[in-house]
Structure formats: C-alpha cells, structure tokens
C-alpha cells in the first residue's frame, strides 16, 4: 500500500480501502461544501471524482471556500477542483465539468457514479439532483449550511427526502456562512458516503443537525408519518 494511505488503516480495513479505490462519485458544486468534499474524498483515496460547477471564484467566496484564493478570482471552480485533486493525490481520476447542472445534463453527469454528493446552494437544484439520483438508483448525500448550522443526510431512491424537507413555500433566510460550517458539513457528508460505499451500517433518511453556535446536535429520523 502506498504510504499516503497508511493512516487510513485500521480506521478503514485494507479491504474497505480497496473497495473505496474502485468507486466513482459525483460532486455537484465546487464552492463551500464542494471544496471540502473534494479535498476529503481526494485525501482518503476514492477512485474517481467528477466535479461540476459553472461558476468562477469571487471575492465573497474567500471567507469559507477551501479551494478559493486571491490569485484564483475569476477562475473556474470546477477546473480548480480538478487541479487540486491532481496536486494532492494523482492516484485519483479527476474529471471536471465547467457547467451548471441543469435538467438537460443531470442524467449524463450521473453516468457510472456510485454516489452523489451535494455541494449545491438552493432547494430547487437539490430537488432536481435528488430526483435524477432516484431515477438512476444512486444514493444522494445531502448537505446544507447556514450561518453556524450544518445538516446532512443520506437520501436513498424513493424516500423523497428533498421534497419533504423543502416544500414549495420554503424561503431561505440567513445566507451567511462561517468558515467552519462547510468544513463540518462536508465531513459529515464524506463520512456518510465512505460508510455507505464500503458497506458499513448507515442510517438513511436521517438528518444529522449541528448548531455550532449553541453547541446542539440532533439526530432526526425524517419521514412523512
């Protein structure tokens, strides 16, 4: 085993790590959540990452987006993500898609993926992606942040978690995000994704809610009863 992965063991078994090396994931959005997701997936040694974002870095990204730098303002987030993957771990197959996800390209983005990680920033896009995942029978690893709050979950095909969580009338209030909030949320998402992909027990349809201001943590079994 390459020395770069030595500290993965025994937290992961060698067999589990071998399984992870064979997996391909899609990360939609390479901003606050996406930057941390891509870094964590790269370092643990997932097989392949497809990173999608049609945006470029702006000054307002610098407070929280891991991949952003002053020297990269105006540069593609997806392209930067692919370069980060290559610089940190050339073992990973990195594919960047410099485009926004739409209803026209979402199915193509999902091709050959074992899991999808949510780096999005609005309910409409999440519902589109989750529905596409459901129709392709791919697990969707949800994450969302606001201010000091992070929440994450595994949504399995058919659970309609995004529709339950974001009814039509949903209005997002606080649009601030602090530097540590996406880092925590991405860590939750990546850990859920790794457990799922290597076959460890996971709770699906359960929201893990963290309020870092009040130091409150809730495990919410989410269903429509």
């Amino acid at each position: 085993m390459d020395a770069r992965y030595a500290r993965n063991i025994p937290a992961l078994t060698e067999e589990e790590w071998g399984v992870l090396r064979q997996k391909r994931v899609l990360v939609v959005g390479c901003g606050g959540l996406g930057g941390h997701l891509i870094d964590q997936l790269t370092r643990i040694g997932i097989g392949a990452i497809r990173a999608v974002d049609g945006d470029v870095f702006e000054p307002s990204n610098l407070n929280r987006q891991l991949l952003s730098k002053v020297s990269l303002l105006g540069i593609s987030k997806a392209k930067t993500a692919a370069e980060h993957i290559h610089l940190v771990n050339p073992d990973i197959e990195a594919q960047c898609v410099e485009a926004f996800m739409t209803k026209d390209n979402v199915q193509a983005l999902l091709a050959d993926c074992d899991a999808v990680l949510d780096g999005l920033d609005n309910p409409e896009s999440r519902k589109l992606l989750a529905a596409a995942c459901a129709s392709s029978n791919i697990p969707y690893i949800y994450g969302a942040i606001s201010g000091w709050v992070a929440q994450a979950a595994i949504s399995m095909p058919g659970d309609h978690l995004m529709e339950l969580l974001y009814p039509e009338e949903t209005v997002l209030g606080d649009k601030s995000v602090l530097s540590f909030t996406p880092a925590l949320c991405a860590a939750l998402q990546t850990s859920l994704c790794v457990k799922l992909l290597v076959g460890r027990p996971v709770n699906t349809g359960t929201i893990y809610y963290f309020d870092l201001l009040n130091q409150e943590f809730e495990i919410i079994p989410f269903n429509n009863r």
Partner: peptide, 25 residues
C-alpha cells in the same frame, strides 16, 4: 421526533420542535 405538517393536531405532553430553513452550500 417525527416529521409532520403544520396541520397536524397536537395534544397534551407532545414535544414540538421547529427548525429553520437551511439551504446554503
């Protein structure tokens, strides 16, 4: 502890928890 709708009836000793919309990324 279980997700419900606003129209759902409440009764004595229920615990109702309300969380704000979180949707950024």
């Amino acid at each position: 502890g279980f997700h419900q709708k606003p129209e759902t009836a409440v009764k004595d000793e229920d615990i109702v928890s309300l969380f704000p919309a979180v949707g950024g990324g």
